[in-house]
Design a protein around this nucleic acid. Structure first.
Lengths: 345, 345
DNA sequence: TACTCATACTAAACCGATTTATTAAGCAAT
DNA sequence: ATTGCTTAATAAATCGGTTTAGTATGAGTA
């Protein structure tokens, strides 16, 4: 019905120029020596008719949008959903809005999304990057656009990022299992060449190396269809019956793993001990409760958004990058306790 | 570096008018009788330099953005995260992008978000609405903007929506508990005046009424801080020790409920049987597995996006609204089976 | 009186597209 | 030779803001 008021309508109503209105609304009244009396009249009318500047037009002219693009692997994954939520909250407080989307770790789709973000003039990019987008990210950086990564980073691309100490986390969790008397410890995870996963694998291997134990590594192809994860997992566990402990690489694979373990009727920890990366309701509520490597989600989100806001502030300024590594917390629960011949019976 | 090419650059390079370029790129070359030879030359150059129209400018002129605004209660809640993900996928296939955000069931924030969406010219609104935004939604509809609701709807606002048969779902679940021999059945849920919750409560009450049992209804204030949910829940369960079964109103309250039950050392289903609305990994993996009312998430998302795309297509067209109600599935698991004095011992 | 300078605004260009209205050239018919 | 009709293209207006460059007015001063 009422076809939204524009800045021209405001100007005409008061018989003044839209320039003046613009200056007033952008807080440049003093600088431009506009009389306090006129400022008051303009603000009054603006409030009365509920005028809001069209941010599209604004963005077109200024090149700024007050929107931050956030790319996660999969928004339906609890880890990413929670981080996204916290980032959204912090950004909102600072007057920024978030557009988010899931990359599915698909490089092609991600490139597509980057161009979409780009021509929507988003002010900054926060991402958990898939592989093979190094060149695209470099382009962004060369164009002077702020980029912050989290969860993982791209080798050879100099950006700010916030990650956790993945290598130590799995090292520590594996050590814990060894201390509890387990020796045939498997690491099951999604196959990936991403930094975080390579680090997790290294941590696991190094811990075993200390005691000259052999790694048992199983990598599973990610698939949105859960049964395609459960299937190879089941096959693997059926075959490798010597395994006495499993470390899962992410919450999702851990959850699937528990389903398989349950289905196979294995007792935890008597038949097999379990530790998973990422803490999650499922692990806390499982019987017995499952030990987990908890990532500091709030701190992650806080650091990510702080870095981004800092970069947005001094847009021209220094281009030193910050690389932040946070530590995790190993929450030890019953699923990974005492394994000895005596205790096992 | 290279300051993005615009339509003028393309036009100048070929010594033609930008109008011509625009017509060609929008598939109006035939209609505008532009020679095939010129069309070819333009398309060639466009591909060569990788020109992409600035969608901000496009939106400003056309009023269309190819963006759909999606407002959920909380993106970190698995039910909403999953729906959001499915909707995002479907929309993406059709060339639409999604901006989503969490309302927190906060009417003030939601109004704010609506204005933000509005001046970003989103083409359509998909929402799980909080209360007291009837007027704002009516405004959208009056302005001819497509609105589709899901999970719940607003009394007195005539929009398309997709919901599940909440009333029958809880009726059915309650009946199931009664058939299994439970008689002191509590319904625990977040307090809310929203349609879906009122229906769930009604279904529960009606089932009890059939057998002249007394309802035991506990409503808990939602809070992002989990301990503020756990606390009153614990108090309630400690006080009402006669309860032999609980029906939880959502996945979140159900998860919290399980934490409390575990903490209090109650056995399921011997001390207390459990059924929850929403199916969720936690329920499938719990020991014993928890019975749940599964919403047809894919069907929900499919219907929502289909309705939206249909409305976007015939933007002018008919304004009949469609109200779709889907049925749920009661997945019966051990947590709600056989209760009798004999079986209980 | 003429010249400078501050004050208080404003006209017009611009961002990058779409869309409306118009035109120039060529040809056929009157 | 004029009119009329295609064809093939374009100039200019528009969307709704911001920003640059400029103007009208009156007071102060040499």
């Amino acid at each position: 019905m009422s076809k939204k008021v524009s800045i021209v309508d405001i100007a005409n109503s008061l018989n003044i120029s839209k320039t003046t209105v613009s200056f007033i609304l952008n807080g440049r009244a003093q600088e431009k020596r506009i009389s306090e009396e006129l400022v008051a009249r303009v603000l009054k009318l603006v409030k009365e008719v509920g005028y809001k500047p069209n941010s599209l037009a604004k963005s077109l002219r200024t090149g700024k949008s007050n929107i931050i693009g956030l790319m996660v692997e999969d928004i339906s994954n609890p880890f990413f959903a929670n981080i996204a939520r916290l980032i959204e909250d912090r950004a909102y407080e600072k007057g920024y809005r978030i557009i988010y989307c899931s990359t599915d770790n698909n490089s092609e789709k991600t490139r597509d999304l980057i161009t979409m973000f780009r021509d929507r003039h988003v002010d900054g990019y926060i991402m958990a990057p898939p592989k093979e987008i190094e060149e695209n990210v470099k382009e962004l950086i060369n164009a002077g656009l702020p980029v912050v990564m989290f969860d993982r980073y791209l080798q050879g691309v100099d950006t700010d990022y916030v990650v956790v100490d993945n290598e130590f986390s799995t090292y520590n969790a594996t050590k814990h299992l060894m201390e509890q008397g387990y020796s045939k410890i498997a690491f099951i995870t999604f196959s990936s060449e991403q930094s975080q996963m390579l680090d997790r694998i290294n941590g696991y291997k190094n811990a075993l190396k200390d005691s000259k134990l052999k790694p048992i590594l199983k990598e599973i192809e990610f698939n949105r269809n859960e049964s395609l994860i459960i299937e190879p997992l089941t096959a693997f566990l059926k075959k490798n019956q010597g395994i006495d402990a499993i470390l899962f690489g992410t919450d999702h694979i851990g959850t699937c793993g528990l389903k398989v373990i349950k289905q196979l009727g294995l007792r935890v920890p008597n038949d097999v001990a379990v530790v998973s990366f990422d803490d999650y309701d499922v692990f806390k509520l499982y019987s017995p409760p499952v030990s987990a490597i908890a990532q500091p989600i709030e701190a992650l989100a806080d650091n990510v958004i702080s870095l981004m806001l800092k970069k947005l502030d001094n847009n021209a300024g220094n281009n030193t990058t910050q690389k932040i590594t946070l530590s995790t917390n190993l929450n030890i629960r019953e699923s990974s306790l005492q394994h000895s011949k005596a205790a096992a019976e």
